[in-house]
Every structure is written in structure tokens, then in C-alpha cells.
Design a binder for these strands. Structure first.
Lengths: 138, 138
DNA sequence: CCATTTACCCACCTACCTAGTAGGTAGGTA
DNA sequence: TACCTACCTACTAGGTAGGTGGGTAAATGG
């Protein structure tokens, strides 16, 4: 399995934010309840999004989070790369791979590389706005 | 990361068997040495292959393992599905998924499903014989 | 018959990751 | 002042990845 709950939950949070009150602030408590995800766990996943200015939060009553862009400006690939750290199918293609002495002669590396490209292209081609469409089929 | 060392090692073992002495038996000790993989670990990965008749082994001196088909008759997808158990990118698409009550309304499921299809198609379209070609580019 | 070679089987182990929980503090609003 | 919400730190149970160690069973050469 390549995509952990982290990435899947965050994607659902982004869609939820986009669907509810696009411009006002939505408390995470509501999102957690609607999406049936532990609030405490969600809280742990959000910092990576705020630090990268994907969403912004305000404290206090009437506060919460909201998107910083319109839904069509978020690609799924971008979000998944942030939350998953990486979208590499094998260890040797991760951000800081352990040096592998077999790289030059590796008969499987080109296959992994091409697949990584396919995967990134696919997810980069889908936006949050796409996921909100009822007739979206992938 | 979706493909563990299990799948990657096994793929290299299959290629090694195909490249060395196609019809005679090759001891795992030699493969482990050539591929620089722990023999003990490899031994643990092989049963799934023998049980599914992907390779066959004979005991004793002069023994070892060999492929049961010609290299072009093995698809990478088939091998990976055996060793990885599955090629599902998310938990809800695994072989025996936990029932998810949100399936009907899930806005991300079609995306995961299409991706799963793409992935399986890609790896099903590559054979061990392809991986042996020097000009193979994925 | 015996030593050697090989497959094959089983128990165990360590480090790390996943998916949480608990208990706060800081900032903002009515 | 009461309340709400983001935000921060620490902890933890359980599982998985990636092995290691110690054997046994089958086949062969001498």
C-alpha cells in the first residue's frame, strides 16, 4: 500500500473545506465529525499543510481553517507529496535514497522510474475541484 | 513506498535465474552472492514462488532452482502480486478490504480505482524477458 | 555408507512506522 | 470573563519490514 491514512484523510479534509462555506473558516471539530476521523489525529496532520500555506487557520470563536486557493488550484499530487513525504514506489527513488551501487547495472530501475513518472503525472492531473464533481471517474 | 524489498528482490532473482543457465538448476547461494542479498532472507521469499509453480527446486549437489517457463511468459505484475500480496495503493482496495461505510459517497474512491487499474496494466505489460533487454526503457 | 551440498522449515528479533490518545497552552471572540 | 479554536509536545500499543540462527530432509559424488 502506497497511500497511508495520512494522505487519504488530508484529501478528504481538503474536499470538506472546499465543500463547506468556501470563504469562511470551518472548525476542524466539524470536519472530523463529518468525515468520521479522530480530531486529535487530524490535528497532527494539519501542520504540514499550514506550513506550506495550503490552508490557513484562525484561533478563537468563529475560527477554524479555510483553503488559501480555489479548489481547482490544488493538484492531488501536490497534496499527496506533502503528506506522504514522497510518491516513490521503491526505496531507491525516494527523496534522499540510500546510495545503491547497483544503479548502473540495475535491470529494474528504468521500470520503476517510468512508473514513478506515470504516477506523479496521474495525480498531478487531478484537482480538488475534479474530486468534487459528481461525474468524476478518475 | 508501495513495493517492498520482497518484490524487488524476487524480481532480481527471477532475472538472475533467466540469465544464468536457463535450463539447469542454479543454487540460491550463487544468486544471493551475485545479487548481494542475504541468502537467509531470500530463502524466506521463495516458498510463495515454488507453491505457485513459478520456479522449481531440486535438492542436493547439482541442485538449485530454475524457471518453469520461458522469461517472456512471466509478467512483472503477476510476480509482484504474488510477493506483495496485492498491488493496491490504498487500504480500501486490498484483497479483503475492511468494509467502509463511506464507499457510496466517497469522492476519492474512483481516483484510487482508476490508479489501481493503471498500475496493474503497466506491470502486466512487462515481462522478465523485457527486463533482460539492454535497451529496455520501461 | 558417508560427507557434502542443496532445498526447506521454524522460531525469533530489532528497529521503525502507523494510527492513534492525552493533556496541555496560546490566541482570539462574544 | 467564558468560551472556543488552533496549535504544541509527549506518549503508546500494535504491526510490519527486513532480517538472523539453527536446524531437518533430500539428493549426489566418492
Amino acid at each position: 500500500m502506497i497511500i497511508s491514512t495520512k494522505g487519504r484523510y488530508i484529501l478528504r479534509v481538503m474536499i470538506d473545506l472546499a465543500e463547506h462555506c468556501g470563504d469562511c473558516y470551518v472548525p476542524m471539530k466539524d470536519v472530523a465529525e463529518r468525515q468520521d476521523i479522530s480530531l486529535k489525529y487530524l490535528e497532527k496532520l494539519l501542520p504540514v499543510l499550514t506550513k506550506n500555506h495550503m490552508i490557513e487557520g484562525v484561533h478563537g470563536k468563529g475560527g477554524g481553517y479555510r483553503l488559501t486557493r480555489t479548489p481547482e488550484k490544488y493538484s492531488v499530487g501536490e497534496i499527496l507529496r506533502l503528506t506522504e513525504g514522497d510518491l516513490a514506489p521503491v526505496a531507491c527513488l525516494e527523496c534522499d535514497p540510500k546510495p545503491c551501487v547497483r544503479t548502473a547495472e540495475c535491470r529494474t530501475l528504468p521500470m520503476w522510474q517510468k512508473f514513478t513518472g506515470m504516477m506523479n503525472d496521474y495525480f498531478d492531473g487531478i484537482t480538488i475541484a475534479d474530486l468534487m464533481r459528481d461525474d468524476f471517474e478518475g
